[in-house]
Nucleic acid binder design. Structure first.
Lengths: 189, 189
DNA sequence: CCATGATAGTCAATTAAGTGACTAATCGCT
DNA sequence: AGCGATTAGTCACTTAATTGACTATCATGG
């Protein structure tokens, strides 16, 4: 029951439409919560029904009209309640790890290919997060920003995302290197 | 559709009962895939129906009887197929990150408490994974084991789990420290 | 001027995941 | 002798997540 809180947290900084929210969940927000557009539209409807967000119609002549949502007082209170109670440890579900777990029983070339692909994906994320961080802290140093910035939550989660992807990249490179070396060694026998 | 592959990957090394599998998914395996006992019993039944695993009844007199499952040839082929096609990037869903995202809008003490709790959890995991790694490599060095060990898949995934939890721990400590400092600075004004 | 892609969604249906309660045996402990 | 913990599950139910198809409008490139 935490998608709703992820949506509330994402709407704290700016009013967003369902569509924009979906974009956000595809980029930075996906860093702390993953969700598909469908879920977001559904969840926004529920949140509005429960009075945790309010939507307002914005008429556009160049684009289709949209509804921008913002968090209400009740929504903030709900987030507060959530912060005080929630603590399910995060769980991982990763196809790549499943594949590597089975590495000794499946085609090594495939595993190496998957690892390489994931490393590239991680690199893209690392660049993305690096850019987001620079943007958030502006001309301040990280230390300075974290000390005195007025909105550091997104910065902290982005730092975690960055470290996570760096971890992914390093592990992918190392694992691929090991598998390559073993393949070579095996071929030489 | 990857829980089935996670189960197959987990059953590669040893025959397990549903109950044992559930234990495993609560410990090490949870490192690459999270699932509840319910799901595992259900999935095992499906896998058996589809001929990807076979179960055999083991009569115990000291304990209730159990059914041990092992992967069939068809199961191995299915894993092979999976390894060659799957590549959904792993997604994160973490209550704690949602909380930290909202850190500037909710009670700082609560956020710090959650971070501290998670750091302790990460420490426990780090110890657990460290032990598992030692056990897997035996008296060999890591390098030696990874070069010549005959079953390195679980070792590699465990390494990722270890690095992940170390990342968690470090990030939790740093974030908590930053929030504590800001709280103090704010109080002094 | 037509196709493609971005914006901004909705509806229906299925699958996966999670919750809660319940059975049954044995072991250790008090 | 009885209580709780551990082993080894099953059944019913609800909620969350995913898949796929569909409707519009407008802008841009060829």
């Amino acid at each position: 029951m935490a998608l709703r809180h992820a949506v509330l947290a994402a709407l704290l900084d700016e009013e967003l439409s369902g569509y924009q929210l979906a974009k956000a969940f595809d980029l930075g927000v996906a860093n702390f919560w993953h969700a598909l557009p469908q879920q977001l539209y559904t969840e926004l409807a529920k949140l509005e029904k429960d009075g945790l967000v309010t939507g307002r119609e914005v008429v556009q002549d160049t684009r289709p009209n949209k509804r921008l949502f913002k968090v209400t007082e009740a929504g903030l209170a709900e987030l507060e309640r959530f912060a005080a109670t929630a603590n399910k440890p995060s769980f991982i579900r990763d196809d790549l790890l499943v594949t590597v777990q089975a590495a000794d029983h499946v085609d090594t070339d495939e595993v190496i290919a998957q690892l390489t692909e994931r490393a590239a994906f991680a690199d893209a994320k690392i660049e993305l997060f690096g850019g987001l961080l620079r943007q958030m802290r502006g001309d301040r140093s990280e230390e300075e920003f974290l000390r005195h910035g007025e909105r550091i939550g997104p910065y902290l989660t982005c730092l975690r995302g960055l470290a996570f992807e760096e971890g992914n990249r390093d592990w992918c490179h190392r694992s691929a290197a090991i598998l390559r070396e073993r393949r070579t060694a095996h071929a030489q026998r």
